Simulated assay, not measured.
Amino acid sequence: MIGRVSGAPVILTPSWFLAAAVLTILFVPTVNSFAPGLGVGTYLVSFVFVLLLFVSVFLHEVAHAVVAKSRGHQVTELAVTLWGGHTAYSGTSRRPLDGILVSVVGPLTNLALAAVCWLAFQAQPTMTIPALLLYAAAFSNAFVGVFNLLPGLPLDGGQILESAVWAATGSRTTGTIVAGWVGRLVAVGVVAWALGWPLLSGYDVSMFTVVWAALIGAFLWSGAGAAIRNGRTREAVAGLSVAALAYPAVAVPVASTVSDAVAAAQRAGAAHVVLVEADGHPVAYADPAAVSAVPPAQAPLTPVGAVAVGLPPTAWVDVHLRGQAMLDAVAAVTRDAQVLVVTDGGRVVGLLDVSHVVAALKGARAR
């Protein structure tokens, strides 16, 4: 971590150092052709260009973070990586407009930097090394800004397309899948352009171009495919609900006997019993296996609390929750209990086994 922006840590990943070394070496021939007598200084100038590029990527992510926070989201991380960077923030499914605004501001920041660097370059009276760096910074920022606006996930332009389709159709999943498939087309198009343009222009295709085109294409294809899978998973998760996954249960006073509890469950048509205090607050649930092990002759004499499992005060969930809201509510209390009381307006209506939720979630993701 190298600092904080909008309350979130800024992380410089180890892969960035690899990218910095590669980019420094790649820019060396450009510096040599302009100033052949620099010697070791050639690498220093080349590295300064990489640092300027790092600043551009950093400001791109800062723009994402600032707008995300201004829209009411919690920014959790800014990272600079091998492939540029990313900004993570919560509440991405809140509003389509948020996705558009947060996504577009990053590329616009790069285009603004490109304009500033170009104007500064134009103001240079001669072509010096600072002028060369300004020219390179203008070109690289313009490229990053335009490239990120391509309308396919995982690029910023894909996020904009996803949000636009979401706003038009009312379905975020539709937006994600459309933007993911367009992202795959963009991946193929980038590779085709990188390899085809030199041939159409009468030049040979270098191995360097082939390798970089393959890497970029693979990165875009992989990100688009992951987006499509995530969209389908989100749709499947949206179909999960507490009401569908919970077991029906009936509440009985904590002072009840086993026979009282069994009779109450039979009348309610429920297989599970929750023990509640006088104010209706659930404190435990009866273990079905332990209840069935009590001899019939002893059931009227055995307190149901003797065969019950205690519950922490937070071990409850609302019956109306579904989708991601349900998963968030369950995740918030799973460290305290593996079985949750299901309530409807404060009234006990069921029990929810966390393992049942996990199995349903795995099934949704598998589909």
Rank of each mutant, 00 (worst) to 15 (best):
R4M: 11
V5T: 08
V5E: 07
V5N: 09
S6C: 14
A8I: 03
P9E: 10
A19T: 04
V22R: 01
I25Y: 13
T30H: 06
A35G: 03
G37Q: 05
G37E: 05
G39S: 09
V40I: 12
G41P: 08
T42P: 10
T42G: 15
V45E: 00
F47L: 02
V48Q: 00
V50G: 00
L51Y: 00
V55C: 08
V57T: 12
F58P: 10
F58L: 14
F58S: 04
A63R: 09
V66A: 09
A68E: 12
Q74F: 08
V75Y: 12
T76K: 11
T76M: 14
V80Y: 05
T81C: 12
G84Q: 05
G85Y: 04
Y89F: 15
S90G: 15
G91Q: 02
T92H: 14
S93N: 11
R95E: 15
P96I: 08
D98E: 14
G99F: 03
I100V: 15
S103K: 06
S103R: 04
S103T: 09
G106K: 00
A112H: 00
V116D: 00
C117F: 12
W118P: 00
A120K: 04
M127N: 10
L133E: 00
Y135L: 12
Y135M: 15
N141K: 08
G145C: 03
V146T: 02
F147D: 14
L149C: 01
L155N: 02
E162H: 11
V165N: 06
W166N: 12
R172F: 13
T173R: 10
T173Y: 06
T174H: 15
T174A: 13
G175S: 10
V178L: 05
A179L: 06
G183V: 06
G189Y: 07
L195E: 07
W197C: 10
P198L: 03
G202D: 07
Y203S: 13
V205N: 13
V205M: 10
S206L: 06
M207K: 03
V210A: 14
V211I: 13
I216R: 07
I216Y: 02
G217N: 05
W221C: 01
A226C: 03
I228L: 04
I228H: 07
R229Q: 13
N230E: 15
R232Q: 15
T233V: 12
A236T: 12
L240Y: 02
S241E: 05
A244P: 07
V250S: 08
S256W: 10
T257R: 14
T257W: 02
D260P: 12
A261N: 05
V262E: 15
V262G: 05
A264M: 04
A268D: 08
A271H: 13
V276T: 12
D279S: 13
H281F: 13
P282A: 05
A284F: 09
A286I: 05
A286L: 06
D287S: 14
P288A: 02
A289V: 14
V291T: 04
V294R: 05
V294A: 03
Q298P: 06
A299E: 14
P300E: 01
L301N: 13
V304W: 10
A308V: 03
P312A: 01
W316A: 14
H320F: 09
L321A: 07
D328S: 13
A329P: 09
A332D: 14
V333H: 10
A337S: 15
V339Y: 04
D344G: 14
G346H: 07
G350W: 03
L352Q: 05
V354A: 10
H356C: 07
A364W: 06
